[in-house]
Design a binder for these strands. Structure first.
Lengths: 94, 94
DNA sequence: TGTTACATTACGCATTATTGCAATAATCAT
DNA sequence: ATGATTATTGCAATAATGCGTAATGTAACA
C-alpha cells in the first residue's frame, strides 16, 4: 500500500457489504446511529467503526443530538451515482 | 466479511491507489498490459493481478492480440461516474 | 453524584490482501 | 523446436483489516 487518494478511501469504505447496506439505509433519510446495530445484527462498536469509515471517506456526515448521533448521506445524489456505478460494472451477459 | 455484492467488489477493486491510477490511464484509450509495469514502476506480475481484479469487478474488459493483451474500460462513462463520486465525497471545507 | 443510554476506542487475535520472486503459460517468429 | 516477448500463477513473507470483548467517553437526568 502506498498512498491513499480520496477515491481509494471511498473504495475502501464501499468494500464491505454491511457498510454498503448502511448507505442504502440512509437513502431513506437521517438516522440515529443506534438504529443500525439491531437492524444489521452486529455489535454497536462495529456500527460505530463503520460509520467512522464512511464518514472519513466523505460519504456521510453526522450531528449530535443529545445522547444520540444522527447520520445522513454527505450528498443526496450519492446513491444515484453509486447506482450508476453498479450499472456500468454489471456484466452484459449474453 | 459476509457476502460480496457487486458494488462491494467494485469498492475493493478501487481500494488501491495503483489500481485507481490504471483506470485513469485507460481513460486515454486502450492499452497493452505491458505498458503499465514500466509506467507504474512495479513488477508485471502485479500488473497482471491488478488488471484481473479490475476486470472481475466489471471495470475493465480485455482482448488478446497476439502475444499481448489489450485492456479497455468496460464503459466509456465510467470515469465520469468515478469523478462524480470523487466530487460528492470531497469535503466542503470552510 | 449516580445512573442510564448511546457512542467510541483499545487491545489481541484471526483473516485477508499485498508483493517479490520464481516458475509456468501463451503466442508468434525464425 | 528454439527463442523472444508478454502474461499469469504459486508460494512465502509482510502488511492491512476485521472483529469480539472490555474499557472509556459523553450527554441527559434524577
Amino acid at each position: 500500500m502506498r498512498e491513499t487518494s480520496s477515491l481509494t478511501l471511498v473504495g475502501k469504505a464501499l468494500s464491505h457489504p454491511l457498510r454498503e447496506r448502511m448507505l442504502w439505509m440512509l437513502g431513506e433519510g437521517e438516522r440515529c446511529g443506534c438504529e443500525f446495530a439491531p437492524e444489521l445484527g452486529v455489535d454497536p462498536s462495529i456500527v460505530s467503526r463503520y460509520l467512522g469509515i464512511l464518514e472519513r471517506a466523505g460519504l456521510l456526515t453526522s450531528r449530535r443530538e443529545g445522547v444520540r448521533v444522527m447520520w445522513q448521506l454527505a450528498d443526496p445524489q450519492l446513491l444515484d451515482v453509486l447506482e450508476q456505478l453498479g450499472e456500468l460494472t454489471k456484466e452484459k451477459v449474453a
